[in-house]
Amino acid sequence: MRLLYHSLAIYLSLTSQAEAASGKKESKEVEHKPCTITSPSSGAFFDLTSLQLPNPKDSKAKHPREHSWNATGHDLGYNFTINVCGPVIEPIEDVVGVDKALWRNVSAYYKQDGKIYSLGQQNSNLTMRGRKLVLNYTDGSPCDPAGSKRAHSVQDLMARDLNDNDMEKRKVKGDDDDEDEDDKKSSKKKPSSTERRKSVIISMLCDKDPLAPQLALSFVGTHDECSYFFEGRSNAACATANTSSGGSLNPGGVFGVIVIIAILVYLVGGCVYNRAVLHQRGWQQVPNYNLWASIFGFFRDIFIILTSSCARFLPSRRGYSRVNGGIGGLGSRRGRGDSDAENRLIDELNEEWED
């Protein structure tokens, strides 16, 4: 018995480890699938692939969409063009501050004074901020440091501090030191390689209204015209069942499982009731046996009728066939002679039996 218990324990431990490993593989596959994510806190699954607009040239739809998603900039004086988890489908050129090889990967942009400014490159990795589903685009066009009053004030203060420091150092040091200070000052004025670039943050919210559009994209605000915030409402942003992994079931599979369980409960429960309470045996234990037998008999009769009607169209059999003669024919005479011989034989057997 101890050997049996040890073997069962080892078997259960191995199966649990296998299930854990398979669960880890499935979670990794879900994380790596583009434009999908599973919430680490609630386990809810989100899939935004239906909001990704493909290129009309590559689309298999009968009437593909020819424009990306749009959002109104309101007081900014320009509007935005955005695609979800993919580059915009409009052909764009001469993007400010972006290499030509990266123009086709721009996922959000706006036009101002005839120039195109990128808000970020393509990104298919979704992020969960608590319960919020977030999509982020980065590495857009360079930010304008003089885009706000705050930037101007900061630059003025920095310039004043530099001038004051230079004057004090020049009073203390000689002419030779002035050249070194000029070199340092010029080096500070050189643009740094880590310049800020425009970016986008889109907060996706669930909208279960059946009459709502596929995606309602709204502009929320911006900081120094460098970081832009949007809000997107769509039915695709609602939590759904994960149908990408093999272990999960879609709604049709769940319905099928429920139907199978209901049938098993009906059969097993009915058989137990008929056997234990009604004391039925044999086929009578099946619940509603007479009903199912009549239905089976009905389909059996239909099958016989169909097969018999179809048999008329089959070719007739070849070979000997019995011919029934008329009243005065040979067949009638043979039949009458056979009956007379049988009667005589019966009479003889009766007489012998009586003797």
Results as ranks from 00 to 15, higher is better:
residue 5 Y to D: 11
residue 23 G to S: 12
residue 25 K to D: 13
residue 27 S to T: 14
residue 27 S to R: 12
residue 36 T to F: 04
residue 42 S to N: 08
residue 43 G to H: 04
residue 47 D to S: 01
residue 62 K to L: 11
residue 62 K to W: 09
residue 73 G to M: 03
residue 75 D to P: 05
residue 85 C to Q: 02
residue 89 I to T: 05
residue 91 P to I: 10
residue 91 P to L: 06
residue 93 E to F: 08
residue 94 D to P: 06
residue 105 N to K: 12
residue 105 N to G: 02
residue 106 V to D: 14
residue 107 S to K: 12
residue 113 D to N: 14
residue 116 I to C: 06
residue 116 I to Y: 06
residue 130 G to R: 09
residue 132 K to F: 04
residue 137 Y to T: 02
residue 152 H to K: 08
residue 152 H to R: 11
residue 165 N to P: 14
residue 168 E to K: 12
residue 171 K to W: 12
residue 177 D to Q: 12
residue 185 K to I: 09
residue 188 K to T: 04
residue 189 K to N: 07
residue 195 E to P: 00
residue 201 I to H: 08
residue 203 S to W: 14
residue 206 C to A: 00
residue 206 C to Q: 10
residue 211 L to N: 12
residue 213 P to N: 03
residue 225 E to Y: 03
residue 237 A to Y: 01
residue 238 C to G: 07
residue 255 F to C: 10
residue 270 G to N: 00
residue 270 G to F: 07
residue 273 Y to W: 03
residue 279 H to D: 05
residue 286 V to Q: 02
residue 287 P to R: 08
residue 296 F to L: 15
residue 297 G to R: 09
residue 299 F to V: 04
residue 299 F to Q: 00
residue 300 R to N: 05
residue 302 I to C: 06
residue 306 L to G: 15
residue 310 C to Y: 15
residue 324 N to L: 11
residue 342 E to S: 05
residue 342 E to T: 05
residue 345 L to A: 15
residue 351 E to R: 07
residue 355 D to A: 15
